[in-house]
Amino acid sequence: MRNWLPHPLLTPILAIIWLLLNNSVAPGQVVLGLLLGWAIPRFTLAFWPERVRIHAPLALLRFGGVFLFDVLVANLSVARLILSGPRALRPAFVVVPLDLANELAISLLANTICLTPGTVSARLSADRRALLVHALDCDDPDALVATIKARFEAPLKEIFAC
């Protein structure tokens, strides 16, 4: 069982991507998509031996909603900053200490803070305990760190239970 269906989550995701790529839900395409979704994880097992476990699916949904809302808000604020010109900026490098142990959770956090609150993740420390972040307009680094930790890191910690 472990070897025949190594990533139970990846199979439906790959099947859905196949259907989207073909832009159809014909039965033949569904079967082909499921077949590919089974075969690709099976034969690329060597690249990702670790199985992804989602411990709180509801928290994942809520996180998705918060993420989409924040993308909109962050884009409007970045657009305002760009239009008001370079003089109004207060850029800063901020170090965010990490409590996450899971690699996938860290990458998701880095991706999320790249897209959301006026920040870009710049460097992960070698021991994976701190993430260097560049903020476009930041007058209080501690408040920024607290926001990131409460808004994005806590849900991710819950979802992946690490």
Partner: peptide
């Protein structure tokens, strides 16, 4: 570093 923000988000 500030230039990076425009293309990635907007």
């Amino acid at each position: 570093y500030t230039r990076l923000h425009g293309p990635t988000k907007a």
